[in-house]
């Protein structure tokens, strides 16, 4: 358990570092740190309990980033990109790129192709995680907007009839 907490804190620190590199306004940096930390914490929680493969864990963590960023963008009234981009970075498979390259230098083609495939799978998992949340929140927004409009309209007609 303490392992996961340490990893979460480190990921939060790393994410906040990225925020500075990407010129995120200083008042949003803690929020980005929390989002990045939570995502990596969830990933580690799934991996360390052997609950699922790294790909599925990345998918879940990316979905969490999408969800939290959408929430934050609504509360703070700021574009969601500002939270998504730093938040997603701990999940980006930088280590796998390195392992693939190392295997290539060793001239070990088996390992190279394994790690390259893993890299692509993880990138796709991030994509799908964000995509799933993006699609759901977008349609939810439309539905709530339409429902609200319909309710308002019916209230108006009700008042008129009275």
């Amino acid at each position: 358990m303490s392992e996961i907490i340490i990893q979460t804190l480190l990921a939060a620190g790393g994410t906040m570092g990225f925020c500075v590199l990407f010129h995120v306004p200083i008042r949003h940096i803690p929020v980005c740190g929390i989002i990045g930390g939570c995502a990596w914490g969830l990933y580690q929680l799934i991996i360390l309990n052997n609950a699922s493969s790294p790909v599925m864990a990345t998918f879940m963590a990316a979905a969490l980033v999408g969800l939290l960023s959408d929430l934050a963008s609504r509360i703070i009234k700021e574009a969601a990109t500002i939270f998504i981009i730093p938040g997603i970075l701990p999940l980006v498979p930088g280590a796998y790129i390195f392992y693939a390259m190392q295997a290539l230098v060793r001239n070990d083609m088996m390992d190279t192709s394994t790690y390259l495939t893993d890299t692509i799978k993880l990138a796709a998992a991030i994509a799908l995680g964000l995509l799933a949340v993006g699609a759901v929140t977008k349609s939810l927004r439309e539905i709530t907007k339409k429902t609200a409009d319909a309710v308002l309209e019916s209230v108006e007609t009700f008042k008129d009839n009275k």
Binding site: T81, I84, I85, V92, I97, L130, L131
Partner: peptide, 14 residues
């Protein structure tokens, strides 16, 4: 690591 490019490319596709 090109995290921005990956994220934005997904959002553009979406």
């Amino acid at each position: 690591v090109p995290g921005v490019a990956i994220t934005n490319s997904i959002r553009d596709f979406l």
